[in-house]
Amino acid sequence: MENKWTLGKTAVVAALTALAALGTMIIRVPIFISTGYFNIGDIFVILAGLWLGPVPGLIVGAFGPAVADAVGYPQFIVATFLIKGTEGLAVGLIGGGPFVTSIKRKASAAVCGGLIMVFGYFVFEAFIYPFIGNYVPFFKVTNLAGAYGELPANITQAVLGVVGGMAMWKPLSNRR
């Protein structure tokens, strides 16, 4: 895949965005304490960042999972848009885009992306949503205890995203 934005890149980014939405929507497990859910959408977000670079990572991360949140979890759309968008962007920036093939660098990028997701949801659920919820009841869905309770599920999700994303990037990395 060339560095400039080609038609092929648009097609792959659109496909990964749709797949990230599906991955987030189809395998989801509700977590009672925080009213959030566990999913496998991060696999495609991390894959997009590792394989295609920062801008595709940002687009796939911001739009795919946020669309999936519309089904049953609309209060998380804003958080997901920002957190997963940042996750994809960071993975792309640290991973070095499509022309870097160092596994160490790609692995550290994927791990950073996973950490951003875990940290981002914790901050949103523990501080930002409870604060906004005081003014807009729609967002009053989580609190500090809920954010702590969701940490194990989010860490598991991040691990699955890193492992799955790396596993998928490897065979695709030869196809530019």
């Binding site: 395998i27 989801r28 497990v29 509700p30 977590i31 009672f32 304490i33 566990f38 205890a145 309770g149 194990p152 599920a153 598991t156």
Partner: peptide, 16 residues
Amino acid sequence: LTGVFSHIPFLNPEKP
């Protein structure tokens, strides 16, 4: 999946 995962305490530490 919800039924199966609800029995894993690690993922749902504080059940209602």
